[in-house]
Each structure stands twice: as structure tokens, then as C-alpha cells.
Design a protein around this nucleic acid. Structure first.
Lengths: 141, 141
DNA sequence: CGATATAGTTGATTTTATCAACCAACTCGC
DNA sequence: GCGAGTTGGTTGATAAAATCAACTATATCG
């Protein structure tokens, strides 16, 4: 029986270590944040006038799940929603001051983990790595 | 607000594409197999005299979850368990003929996806990619 | 030999995700 | 302008996945 170890195993191991390290760094357990919460925060941070629908589209997840995640983030006082002037059905999501603080902490943790990951690697190695990964991703579309 | 895009995003996108492509290739939905089933199959295939406890240790998951996954794989007639002679508490897991067939199909699908991922990349690029990934993983330990 | 540890099983519960239905607001063709 | 169809978001119900807890049989060790 062929037991060749595919590329995915290597990447899986890497992503698993990454997740564990980040969660520890932002105290995710105590804050009650899971991976999807974090992904939502990233999207709120990077999408102009972010709506629930933007998150649905970018995560390819169910509307109900996203609505619940948003509600939880609002309850945690990390984001607020205000009515859109252009379309009364939609709400614009933005960070609270507390949310800003937490997201900054998250970014800092991510950058520290990035730096740790890249120890003993040259900028060229990292650049090559990223471009290969991007091409692989593109090859799968 | 700093919105630097970390390495993890690139990898996340790649892993997501990989998962979707593999699942399609082995008809995971029809077979009722999820990612954890597949991981268990991989571990059964690569671990001599594999026991439930081996899977628990390698996946760092709860005993109950692994027991249930194993039970499901047995129900699907993909694996069997027989008593260990050395220790009456444990069972040795192995593939059925049908399980062999499915796992071969899984490996083939993985190799095809690997090949697709690596299109237009040189062996050296892939080798570098893997060694960088492995070093990153090692850096996070 | 008895206390403690371990492998596996199962019940109960929690967490996460999905399906379904709904309402308000918007769009578009007539 | 109007009505049928579409869209954005909410909530109930349900399914799937994961975790916690308790247990029994077996093994280990002082």
C-alpha cells in the first residue's frame, strides 16, 4: 500500500501549530472567541463599510451562522452595527474602542507568530514560499 | 489600523481549496466521510498495529470522538478491529478490502491534486516550499 | 495483592453549523 | 406607479461535531 506523504500533511501540521499559538497569544479561550469570530474581525477590519453580507460572501458560510457570530461580537462589545443610509435592510459594522484594542493585539500576536515562523529563514525564502503557495492555490481553482 | 496580510491567510486559502478538491474527488459527501474520518484512515494506513489510542495521540482529539469515528468507519465496512494478543484492553485496526479500495482511491485523488497543485512549478521550488514549511512548523514548537 | 493507571465504550451535554421560514426593504419590468 | 421577484438580516428548529463525565475491564507497580 502506497503511503506517500502529500504536501497537505506538511501544511496541515503547520496550520495547526499556527492556530494553537495564536489562540494562546490573544487569550481566545477566556474571551470566548473561536476561529470564525477571528475571521469575522479580520473581514470587518479590511472591508470598507462592512456588512453581514460581505462576511457571508467572503467566508462562504451560511447567513444564520454569520448573523450569530456578529451578534456574539456585539454582545462582547467588540463591534457595533449602524443602519446604512443607502439601504435600510443592511447594517454597517465597525469596531468599538475595545474591539480596536483587541484587534491590534491580534495583529501584534499574528506578527509575532509570523516572525517566529520565519526565524532562520531569509526574506527570499519567505517570498518564494508565498509565491509557490499562491500559485498552488491558483492551480486548484 | 494595520491590515498586514499574514502568511496564514495565504495558507488558509490554499488548504481550503485543497480540502474542497479532495472531498469532491473521493465523493466524501455520498460516503458520509468528514475530514476526521479521512485523517483516521491515514493513520490506520501508516501506523503499524494501529489502535484507537494511536489515533487519539496523533490527532490530539478526545477519546470519545475517536471511538465514534472508528465505530462509523467499521459500520461503513472500511475497517475492522481485532483483539490484541498483548493487551486485552486494546484492538488492532486494519482495512477491509473495501477500505483498501477506498483508501487507494483517496491516495490517488491526493496525488492528482498534488500534481495539479504543482503544475508549472519546478521540483526545486516544491522541495524548497516543503523545507520552508517544515522549518516554520518546527519554529512554532 | 491492592491501589493506581490505562484502553475503550457510552451517556449526557455543549458547541458549531445548517436548514427553513419569515419580514422589511429593494429592484425591475410592465 | 405597481406588483412580482430578489435581497439583507433575524430567529426557530434541527443536525452534526466535539467535549465532558462516568464506567468497566485490563494492566502495572510497589
Amino acid at each position: 500500500m502506497n503511503t506517500v506523504k502529500p504536501i497537505a500533511n506538511t501544511l496541515f501540521t503547520l496550520m495547526q501549530s499556527y492556530r494553537v499559538t495564536i489562540r494562546k497569544a490573544i487569550n481566545a479561550n477566556e474571551l470566548g472567541l473561536n476561529a470564525m469570530h477571528v475571521r469575522c474581525l479580520h473581514i470587518v477590519a479590511t472591508t470598507q463599510r462592512c456588512t453581514a453580507n460581505d462576511i457571508v460572501n467572503q467566508t462562504q458560510r451560511d447567513k444564520a451562522q454569520i448573523a450569530r457570530l456578529i451578534k456574539e461580537l456585539i454582545t462582547l462589545n467588540l463591534i457595533v452595527k449602524c443602519a446604512s443610509e443607502e439601504d435600510k435592510r443592511r447594517f454597517i459594522l465597525s469596531f468599538t474602542t475595545q474591539g480596536d484594542v483587541l484587534f491590534s493585539k491580534l495583529l501584534e500576536a499574528e506578527q509575532q507568530v509570523n516572525a517566529l515562523m520565519c526565524k532562520n529563514l531569509t526574506p527570499q525564502q519567505i517570498k518564494d514560499f508565498l509565491s509557490v503557495a499562491a500559485m498552488m492555490s491558483e492551480n486548484l481553482k
